[in-house]
Design a protein around this nucleic acid. Sequence first.
DNA 1: CTTTGACCTGTGAGTAGGTCACAGGTTTTA
DNA 2: TAAAACCTGTGACCTACTCACAGGTCAAAG
Lengths: 143, 143
Amino acid sequence: MKVKELATAAGVNPDTVRFYTREGLLNPTRNPENNYQHYDTEDLRRLRFARKARQLGFSLPEVRQILDQADDHHSPCPMVRDVFQQRLEGVEQEIEELQQLRKRMKSALAAWQDMPDGTPDGQTICRLIEHWDDNSPAKQVEE
Amino acid sequence: MKVKELATAAGVNPDTVRFYTREGLLNPTRNPENNYQHYDTEDLRRLRFARKARQLGFSLPEVRQILDQADDHHSPCPMVRDVFQQRLEGVEQEIEELQQLRKRMKSALAAWQDMPDGTPDGQTICRLIEHWDDNSPAKQVEE
DNA sequence: CTTTGACCTGTGAGTAGGTCACAGGTTTTA
DNA sequence: TAAAACCTGTGACCTACTCACAGGTCAAAG
């Protein structure tokens, strides 16, 4: 397979194939006649695997690590279980934080219902934001 | 105030102060004797405002836009309400997507309970991931 | 046989929002 | 007077791609 064929087969951008190749996740051979890359079904498997892993939240270095372990005929699965568990916790924390943010945003919106717009007066830029309580207290300081 | 003083006052990295200055969000004056930047309380207000706005999900260009409007003595608040509403929707969508991901991850974990690790055999890299159903069907192709 | 279009190549830049490193100048403290 | 702590600007780095560019290759159409 050539670049675009592999890309199409895996449903990704051809540039992603080239990028992954540069990054060492794919190991194509080269046609010496025209200098083209040649990918086989193993590469397709690796690419599909990489995409799935990315969707699951693995970083590219993590994906490469898994692939490398597989190349050395070590089972990467225990590591996968491990990193996966961590990623799940990361995702849950992200959700938590976003829900906090959402809550604060909604109460800010509610509080803004009754606030006038007001023109900047040199003391305040936009009351809507300045009076938003982010419960991260800033320190006070004088010039 | 000098860079580090302002940074400390606002609870940010000094490099962030320099970065925001380069980006035109802060307008310090210069001491011609030593070429140092001098920030006043107005800059501190702007910096704090910028940080709050960033926490609310405004992008730096948006923050700059608000600040510029305030400099021109136009009330930026209607724009703020508008962008804020959009950000809220964005946040809610992010939450939605993360919850979807979390759901898929949890069911994957459950399915993995009973799967053996297995050593890579050339056909499969890590069953855990390859057998994960991401409901994004890939096309089939032969070499 | 030539042209056209689709593909290939590598390299480099761009994305967002900072953070860090570097080399050299200044100020403050001991 | 010397070290520590600060200042300056510039440029690289981070993620995970994506896009642009300039030039080479190839298959089909004319």
